[in-house]
Amino acid sequence: MRHLLSAADLTRAEAIEILDTAETMAQTQSREIKKLPPLRGMTVVNLFFEDSTRTRISFEAAAKRLSADVINFSAKGSSVSKGESLKDTAQTLAAMGADAVVIRHPASGAPHRLATAGWIDTPVINAGDGMHQHPTQALLDAFTMRRRRHGAATTGTDLAGARVVIVGDVLHSRVARSNVDLLATLGADVVLVAPPTLLPVGAEVWPCALSYDLDATIAEHTPDAIMMLRVQRERMSSAGGGFFPSPMEYSRRYGLDGARLRALPDHAIVMHPGPMNRGLEISAQAADSARSTVVEQVSNGVAVRMAVLYLLLAGGRSSERNAQ
């Protein structure tokens, strides 16, 4: 594994290796001294062309706890807003000695281009690209589910048989795509629930079931985990695509309210990648309930990103090894 671009690229063994490594990393994070030495002397660049403070901070914490130096590059107020290309920006940062680039970009495939266009020669980690992929989010979600499912004995386990329902704006969601890919690889049984306007044409071949009816899905699928996707209010306006008539109607049909929360199996967890729209896709009651893993997901995110950085960067590249 040279880059992490898409959850779909991970084999079952690779995914489990990342989750197992994350488990070890998580263990170290309960210690007083959280810092570990394996990336000492390395520089990780967070190249963020889109606002996402929480993802950036999570990667930053992960890199720093592995003793890497971190350079944060945010497109806002930078040369990018003056028309500098992704290529020039990336080459500039590489010239400053970046050993890895963590990229968040509004254009689907931008991390893929960075990894394959020949502009730079460093590992690339996709921190979310357009409507495409957000692989570390899927990994932290799987990590969270695996812990809930297997307790202390998670090492080497997958999610075979786990029933997961993902609800919301699948069309625009990189979180949904990454989760479908990774959960399928790990053996989980996934149902996507969305209004028909927010399911992409072509999703019918994805390794999951599709539904328009949240209540029926909860009743029939009895999920172990239900994941609510963020829905942007502007999607209802004509300019935003007119995907649903009103936030109220969306909330009534697809929001996780008190009644739906009660209809879930007792052990089911409620997940959300954040940031939440309380009152739209998730009620305050569901967000704050004991079933909610939202906060846990955030702390698991650091462990998973530590694992990814460790596995991609700690070992020498074959060219370096040969030189030594």
């Binding site: 197992d20 070890t24 070992g315 020498g316």
Partner: peptide, 12 residues
């Protein structure tokens, strides 16, 4: 570490 392929972590 950097002279070898990435090593899997063992439990502590």
């Amino acid at each position: 570490l950097r002279r070898q392929p990435t090593r899997a972590l063992e439990p502590t």
